[in-house]
């Protein structure tokens, strides 16, 4: 039997089995309309409060960093300029490492 015929036979079997699998979940009820509305409203609320919290955290962290930077700049300008060079380099290195790892994982899959 050639490969095409074998493939066709496999695909027919696969489709039939997937239909059988679908049928197993035919009786799963979709959530009721009020339940769906409630779920979406609760989720929208949760997202809103989460973004408020994140914004607040971001502002606090920004204020803290800014005060540190200004203090360092005032007392030790040389240290400040070294940090300006080291941090971008570290970030770029980290990003490159993540990219390489992702590629390896994708190749592994």
């Amino acid at each position: 039997m050639n490969n095409d015929a074998e493939d066709q036979k496999l695909l027919n079997k696969l489709s039939a089995e997937l239909e059988r699998l679908d049928a197993q979940y035919d009786d799963i009820p979709a959530p009721s309309l009020p339940a769906m509305q409630q779920f979406l409203a609760a989720e929208a609320d949760r997202r809103r409060s989460q973004s408020r919290r994140e914004l607040l955290l971001f502002l606090l962290a920004a204020i803290l960093l800014l005060s540190i930077v200004l203090t360092v700049l005032g007392f030790a300008p040389a240290v400040y300029w070294v940090i300006q060079a080291v941090i971008p380099l570290a970030v770029l290195g980290g990003l490159a490492a993540v990219k390489v790892r992702q590629r390896r994982e994708e190749r592994g899959q």
């Binding site: 979709a30 959530p31 009721s32 309309l33 769906m36 509305q37 979406l40």
Partner: peptide
């Protein structure tokens, strides 16, 4: 909600 329920 109706739209998403329809496709659930």
């Amino acid at each position: 909600a109706g739209l998403l329920r329809e496709h659930y």
